[in-house]
Every structure is written in structure tokens, then in C-alpha cells.
Amino acid sequence: MRIVCPFCGERELGEFTYLGDAKPMRPEAGASEDEVFDYVYLRDNAAGQTSEHWYHGGGCRAWLKVTRNTLTHEISAVEPAAGVGARQVAK
């Protein structure tokens, strides 16, 4: 498997570490226990397109959002994951 890192180009799987589903967004401070529970534990088990967090630890240390088809393993998009994992809070 190969991932095209937006910073480093096409690299081999061994340079990357998989984290998991990129869909859940970390709730804002003050969220209820139920909301946080969903964020921490509840995952879809999609057959088809999923977005996932991958870490390019063997390269630029960027966290990436990888759009991958779980049926074919085809990767259709790789983007920097910056800011996609949390509900934005005011600075």
C-alpha cells in the first residue's frame, strides 16, 4: 500500500501509522459525557469510502486525512488533517 503524502510525495505504507476513523470530531470543552463517549468510542464500520487519520512518522510528521475505500483499499484523497479533528473553539 502506498500513500501520496501532500508534503513528501508517494511513500510506502511502512512510513505511516494508522490511527483510525477521521470522522468523529472532538467536542468542545463543556460537552456532556455522552457526547465525549460517542467521540471516543462510537465508530462506523463502513464498507466503502472512509476517511482515516494517518501519521507520516517516517517522513514529515504530518497527520493526514486519507480517504480510502475499505472494499478495494483504493485511496482517493490525501489531505493534511490540520484542524479536521475538533470542533473549533475560539482562541
Partner: peptide, 10 residues
């Protein structure tokens, strides 16, 4: 890095 890039980019 996950916290910095993904959760708290601000």
C-alpha cells in the same frame, strides 16, 4: 503532533 495539528490547530 495529533493534538497540535488535528485538534488544536488554532
Amino acid at each position: 503532533e495529533f493534538c497540535r495539528q488535528v485538534l488544536f490547530p488554532e
